[in-house]
């Protein structure tokens, strides 16, 4: 694999893969994302009926997450630079039931596209007033809400002139183990979508759209923030509806 591939090379690979669109999930064998080549299984997944702990997810509660962890703009003495935004939505399971009292973790770059992480060497400024980490528990109806700063796009070393579209990393638990999801939320209309092999590894266009938040002017507040809505649907639970009601 040539580490100095050009964006044109990557575009060709993305187009070739799009000729044989896969299912709603990313293709884990997606060579345009160079680091994936040696890091995905080649044997088929073994289908199994979930049992015991696999039918349940770990429980999280208010001892785990403080209320102010949902506001990424108040973690330091000063106000972070950038566009203040609210991101909110509901977590639902594959049958449309709200996922209540579950943990969501987020992490992101600052408004200049820099992570507060020692491995991030992008020469954009750190923001002393922004860490870029948040946690929240979903409410009884599956609602979550973060206040943060809109992250900037950032370069990476996949190929020459590779840039990631702006995104927020989301880690989500469902009501059973099999629903565990880590993904990335994107912003509408990002011009970098078509060039990004991570986003394009989801070869079905409709499925890609599920990761794009919608701008919602009703979430925008005067003189303060703009707002984005992003609902997250997990796979279906393997427990019966009765089991689920008992734990709601």
């Amino acid at each position: 694999m040539n580490p100095q591939s050009s964006q044109a090379d990557i575009n060709q690979e993305i187009e070739a893969a799009a000729q044989q669109p896969g299912g709603p999930q990313p293709k884990i064998d997606y060579a345009a994302y160079r680091s994936s080549v040696l890091r995905h299984p080649k044997q088929p997944l073994q289908l199994v009926d979930p049992e015991s702990v696999e039918l349940w997810a770990p429980a999280f509660g208010h001892r785990d997450v403080a209320d102010d962890e949902a506001d990424l703009t108040i973690q330091h003495a000063g106000t972070p630079l950038g566009e203040r935004i609210v991101v909110t939505g509901r977590v639902l399971d594959g049958d449309g039931r709200p996922v209540a009292n579950q943990l969501i973790e987020v992490w992101q770059a600052n408004s200049a596209g820099r992570y507060r992480h020692q491995r991030d060497q992008h020469p954009a400024p750190h923001d002393p007033n922004f860490t870029g980490v948040g946690r929240v528990l979903t409410g009884a109806d599956g609602t979550y809400r973060f206040q943060t700063i809109k992250p900037g796009p950032y370069p990476w070393r996949n190929h020459l002139n590779a840039w990631r579209p702006a995104h927020i990393h989301f880690s989500i638990f469902g009501t059973d183990f099999t629903q565990r999801l880590i993904t990335q939320m994107y912003f509408p209309g990002d011009p970098l979508f078509r060039y990004d092999p991570i986003f394009q590894s989801i070869t079905d266009p409709k499925s890609r759209e599920l990761l794009i938040a919608q701008y919602d002017h009703d979430l925008t507040t005067p003189e303060w923030n703009t707002g984005y809505r992003w609902d997250i649907v997990l796979t279906g639970s393997h427990r019966t509806p009765l089991d689920l009601e008992e734990t709601a």
Binding site: P24, W107, H169
Partner: peptide, 18 residues
């Protein structure tokens, strides 16, 4: 309902997950 696709945890996950 269609389930949201996964994406890689990326190189900077320690920031949010550790």
């Amino acid at each position: 309902m269609s389930a949201a696709p996964g994406q890689t945890v990326g190189p900077f996950f320690h920031l949010g997950l550790a």
